[in-house]
Every structure is written in structure tokens, then in C-alpha cells.
Design a protein around this nucleic acid. Sequence first.
DNA 1: TTGTATGCGTTATCAC
DNA 2: GTGATAACGCATACAA
Lengths: 336, 336
Amino acid sequence: MNIGEIAKRAGVSRSTVSYVLSGKRTVSEELRRRILTVIEELDYRPNAAARALKEGRTRTLGLVIPPASQRLTDMQLGFVASVVEAAAGADLDVLLSPSGGDHERSFERVVTGRRVDGVILMEIRLEDDRVSRLRQSGLPFVTIGHPADAADVWWIDVDYATLITRCVHHLADLGHRHIAFVNRSAELVAAGYGPGHRALAGFTSAITERGLAGVDVCCPDDAAGGEDCLERLLADHPEVTGLVTINEAALPGVQRALERAGLRVPRDFSIAGVAGRHWAEDFRPPLTAADVPAMEMGDEAVRLLQERIANPATPPRHILHAPPISLRSSTGPRRH
Amino acid sequence: MNIGEIAKRAGVSRSTVSYVLSGKRTVSEELRRRILTVIEELDYRPNAAARALKEGRTRTLGLVIPPASQRLTDMQLGFVASVVEAAAGADLDVLLSPSGGDHERSFERVVTGRRVDGVILMEIRLEDDRVSRLRQSGLPFVTIGHPADAADVWWIDVDYATLITRCVHHLADLGHRHIAFVNRSAELVAAGYGPGHRALAGFTSAITERGLAGVDVCCPDDAAGGEDCLERLLADHPEVTGLVTINEAALPGVQRALERAGLRVPRDFSIAGVAGRHWAEDFRPPLTAADVPAMEMGDEAVRLLQERIANPATPPRHILHAPPISLRSSTGPRRH
DNA sequence: TTGTATGCGTTATCAC
DNA sequence: GTGATAACGCATACAA
């Protein structure tokens, strides 16, 4: 079914059909009716490839995600979901591309095959090859997270340094003097994962500012890893009475280790961090945390990307979120 | 950058370049070299839209997911991840389309705009409009889950009836006489969500077969809902000593309610169910459950779809998974 | 072994 | 207000 067939059945030319569809020139009411009826009857819809070829744009956004092998966190999932939702709201389709692992080809196809009008990139490293690649390709893109050298890229991020700093101050205000920072996995941090580094910087500076004793550890991104990690931490640093973290996936394990050590939260031990809202609320006890507005951020990513596609010359825009810390029930005064 | 530009710079015709790329006819080694060098230099890649238009296929699969508003379960996430991974492995791209909610347009675009060569559908209802729509459209599709009338559709599913039956037998063997079934949310079940109905059927028949007393309840798909639900259940049916469930998202709440009621798992109360492996393992105590092979199923969905695209006349194939129940630590003998 | 010509389905320019 | 026609970039049947 193509536009020519519609034209034939309606007894008009192809261009008239096209103009009825686009509304870019006036068509007599009679023909309009007739054409729309035929379109309806045959359930005709323009061929996307032909349209893309002619118009030079695909009405499709690329979304580059971490490979599946590495399980997506709740927060990442929130980004994906909200990007898809926002794109659908703007009548845009979303092409998913796993990066990393052995998926170079998928990424290359998206970037260089003109399959999309723009790209949204997640899980940004401080030095990120994909960002360089995209920069050089000229394809509009927006990142969720930002690389070290980010002046010329459009991005949206969470201000991990500030948030972790606030968490430390909160614990310090409650009287805690020995505080631990539970980071994401060692591999991720070693690979230059931005939030890991920025959160650590925030932790270190706050610890110094308040004259506290701080210890930081990397921790695998799952419950079992969290359990091991905290067990070791408690053994090596029994003086620690509270922790701050950006590793939501490790928390169930963290809590099990605390329980096993006979420590109650928040009576004997306080936990604060950065996490998705659902996560923080479903945790027991509910987690005192900065609630990352994942839904909003996906939305913004799509908006920014549309803006950039529409007007490539616009100077870069950055959005840095520092949501307030929601006081729940996982932090309390230090017990003597 | 197009194929003509490459041809000009290499001093050959466009078709020669095209044939070098496709390998569909022999090209002298000298020209081949020259052309490949130019391609390399300019980092040329064929325009996907032009190729799709010419070839009549897009090398893209559609993946229809539930809307983001309704949070994806761990299992659904596993499907998405594995589909994307498998598709990437076959050099196929994946176009994501949220369905339900107010995303009709997105679904219609995918189905009727020839944006994809085939579609993978998730979260199937017994009577599913999207399946009917796809059936009538002639576009090849595979479902994860299956509708009531599924003889002519290609699908992959988990045998919820059998698995829940096994769970009931397992509890019965341990001496439990009063068993509850915790279903997915009432809305989902009312909407004809397949697993909800089939699992319930399996539960009922097993209860009857063993001469037990069974009670079944619907339960919201989140921790808070699970907590409420179990609290009510324990109040109304204090004789119940074990439950089986397909609602993994409710389990943290279920457990909290049990704890609050002073019931220990598995000493005082047994839990068995169907869940993703990670989920079951991370649970405390680790969950005795049939581990849904989500990764494998996404893979199969892509393979089946490729098969169907390649050979539309092949009779439909169905794959029904009934993974064994992994004995972990959430079930034990009834206490007297 | 290579080149020329055609058409995929659209949109948009030009002519009427 | 409407119709004919030329691209868009590619793959391939047909010529040489």
C-alpha cells in the first residue's frame, strides 16, 4: 500500500494526497474528504523509510544503554522508561543500542548509518570514547551524566558531589564521627565512572571540612557484594557508625550484614545516600536519601535533544540536579 | 556522504562500490583496494533509509513493552535486555514501543509504517487487541506470553499453571494443609493477564487434587501492596501456613507483614513461587522458586522471529518453559 | 570485470 | 487548486 495507490483510488495525483497528509497546501474540501476516506479504508500510513530518505530525518532517537550482561539498576531503568515515554509523547520512536561489551557494531550503525536524528547516551565515563565518537560524527546528542571535558556537550546529571556532601553533613550533625562511603563497583570506578569519582570527591571534602574520620570502599553492585563488603568494613573499622552510598543495589546486602552484626538501623547504625524514590521508600527502614528524579531527567533529555536537533547552533545546555535529601527513617543520632 | 561520492573519488561507478560492499559480484583486487581505502578515509556507511526503501526490509525489530508508568518487573526487564542483546548479536536494531496507556500512535507507527521487519510483544492478555491487530496486519510477530486463542501465533511462555501446581505439591508434601495463592494485581487479572489466570487455574486444580484448603488473593505489584495484602490474609485466614506466588514485586512487603505477625520463614511460614533467578537468590531467606529463564527467552524470541521473517509460511512454533523448582530456604515442614 | 539504467515511496518544485 | 516530475541513496537487472 503506497501513496500512488491511494491517489489512483481517489482519482487524484500523488502530490494531492501528500499535501492532504502534510497540510502544506490547501486542498478543496471535497477532495480532502474523498482522499481521507480512501486512506481510512485502506488503513494507509506513509512508508517510514521513503519519508526518511526524502526528508533527511528519521523521526527516531537513539538510546545507548549499558550492555544487558551488566544488570541495569533501578535508576537506569527509570531513565530508559522515561526517555521512551517522552519520545512517544513527541511522536518519536526510540532505537535501543547496547554499548560496551562486544556491541561496537550496534553503536556504529546507529551513529553513522543515519538511523536516528539524535542520540541519548547513558552511563558516561569521565573519559568516554562514545562521547568523542559522537562529537566527531556531528550527530546531535545529549548525555545523562557528563564526561570530564563537558563544556561543549549537552548534558543532564545528578550532582553526586553535592548530594554526598549533604549526606555527610547530615550524619555529622547527628553526632557521627566515623563515616564510611560505599561506592559503586571497583571496576566501574576504575573505568572512570563519573558518579563514583564525583561522589568520592564530595565525601572526602565534607569529611575534611567537618574534621571527621572517613573510610571509602568500592562495592559490587549487588546484594551479595554488599553483604561481603560491609562485613569486611565492620571488621576493619568497628568504630564506623554510619555510611553514605550511591550503590542502591548493594543495600539489601549491606543491611543483612548489619543485622548479622547485631546492629539496628537507625538505632546503632545510620545509612544515607542517593537513590531512586521507589527504592528508598521500599527499603526497610525507609531510606533517608536524595531522590534522583529519573523520570524527569529522561523527559529533559528528550526535550534537550529535540532542541538541539532543531537548532544545532545553540550553545550547549547543562542541567545539574541536586534534589533535597528526603528525611526518612534510616538515620539517627549516634549512640554512645 | 553517499555511495556516489565514494564512486567518484575512487574513479569507478556506483554499482562497483555497491558490489564491493555486498560482495555479490567479484571486483578486481585493485579496484577493491582503492574503493575500500576511500570508504575507510571518509568513514562511509550506507544510508539505512535508502537501503530499507530499496530492499523492502529494515533490519530492525520492534519490541512492544508495557508503558513506563507501570514499573517494569525484574523479569520484564530481563526480557528487554536479552532481546536487545540477542538482536545486536544478529546485527539487528531494536525499536522500542510502549503500548497501552495513551501510546496507540507509537504502536500503530511501528505496525503499519513498515519501520520494522517483525515485532516482539510482551505482557500478553488472554484477549489481546495488539495480537489481533498484528495478526491482521500480516507483520511477522512473536509473543512472550500467549493469548487464549494462540494456535496460529508464534510464542514463548512460562508454564505458570504447571509451576504453581508444583509449588502447591511441594508445600503439600511438607505437610501444609492451608495454602494461599498471591496473584498479581486485581486490575491486571481483571484485564485478562494470562499468567494470573493460568497460575490460578494451576493452583485450584492442585488444591483440589490434594484435598487441601486454598485461598487466593490478588495483590498490588509492589512492596507496600504486598504488606497490606498479607496482613489482611493473615487476619482473615490465620490457619494458612504457606503461600505460593507469581508476584515477585510484592514479596518484600509480604515478608515484612510476616515478620510483624511474628512469623519466621520458613520455620512458621513457607513461601514458594515463580521468579527471576537473581530475585530469588537475593531474597532473604533465598526463595524456593521456579527460576524463569528470562535471558534465554529473549534470545529465543529473536531467533523465532528471524525464522518467521525468513520463512513466513512455516507453521507456528511454540515454546513452553517449565523450569524445575530450585529448592532454597523459604519452605519447610509445617509446624504443629 | 565493469558501467548504465531503473525503481523503491516520498516530498517538494515547477508548471498549469 | 491541482497535476506531472525530479530528486533522496541504494541495490540490481541488464548491457557491454
